[in-house]
């Protein structure tokens, strides 16, 4: 950062500045989840065997499918930016919609998965869960809070895309002003990236 940037706030857009702001925000998101990962690591260290047993009860298939969904949505997200940069607005809009739909599919899956667990009497503070022992209580506590917090972020991402979709439609986001789309993309990728860690840490404990 040795170069001196001759920038002023004179009403022209600062592309790098906007990106910088977004990345700083992403750092806060990383550390928000970081706090949960600290909890996770301590309790996993404390209850190695119990975590193993509890993780067996999670459906790896649903987890894997959801991983695929999010990875694919990251791809379509990136493609929608590339399409817009190449000037193909309609293709970009198409990919944005696909990204949104994949996000919704992810949440649908999550809903089914949570629903099954709750149906079996496994939810925070349930009598059945408490009877399973401390390690299980911690595992499912972490599971519900961490995937819940993550799902909340997916939901926020979908809402953001609704706005971006209309921004693109109305010409607020254009091929030479993609920074809003790019920043929403960054957010979406980060949410994906967090899932990349959540998946093995909850579904693949051996």
């Amino acid at each position: 950062m040795e170069e001196i940037l001759h920038k002023t706030a004179e009403h022209h857009r600062d592309y790098t500045g906007a990106k910088m702001g977004m990345w700083l925000f992403l750092f806060t998101e990383m550390l928000l989840f970081g706090g949960m990962f600290i909890l996770y690591s301590v309790y996993r260290f404390e209850f190695i065997a119990e975590f193993h047993a509890a993780a067996k009860e999670l459906d790896t298939t649903i987890g894997a499918v959801n991983t695929l969904i999010l990875l694919t949505s990251s791809l379509t997200m990136a493609l929608s930016i590339a399409a817009l940069q190449k000037g193909n607005k309609n293709l970009s809009l198409f990919f944005q919609v696909v990204t949104m739909l994949l996000g919704i599919a992810f949440l649908g899956n999550k809903y089914l998965e949570w629903g099954t667990k709750i149906h079996h009497g496994i939810y925070p503070n349930s009598e059945y869960l408490l009877s399973l022992g401390k390690g299980q209580v911690m595992f499912y506590g972490l599971y519900f809070v961490m995937t819940g917090l993550h799902a909340l972020h997916v939901l926020i991402g979908i809402v953001i895309f609704v706005f971006i979709f209309f921004f693109t439609l109305s010409g607020d986001v254009t091929s030479d002003n993609t920074v809003k789309l790019e920043n929403s993309g960054l957010y979406w990728h980060l949410v994906d990236m967090i899932w990349v860690y959540l998946f093995p840490l909850f579904y693949l404990i051996t």
Partner: peptide, 23 residues
């Protein structure tokens, strides 16, 4: 870099108070 850790900690208090996760 530090404030997000507070955010999650405070959220956890609220979650604990409402759902009794037990962390």
């Amino acid at each position: 870099l530090a404030t997000p850790i507070l955010a999650i900690t405070l959220l956890l208090i609220i979650i604990e108070r409402f759902f009794g996760v037990g962390f």
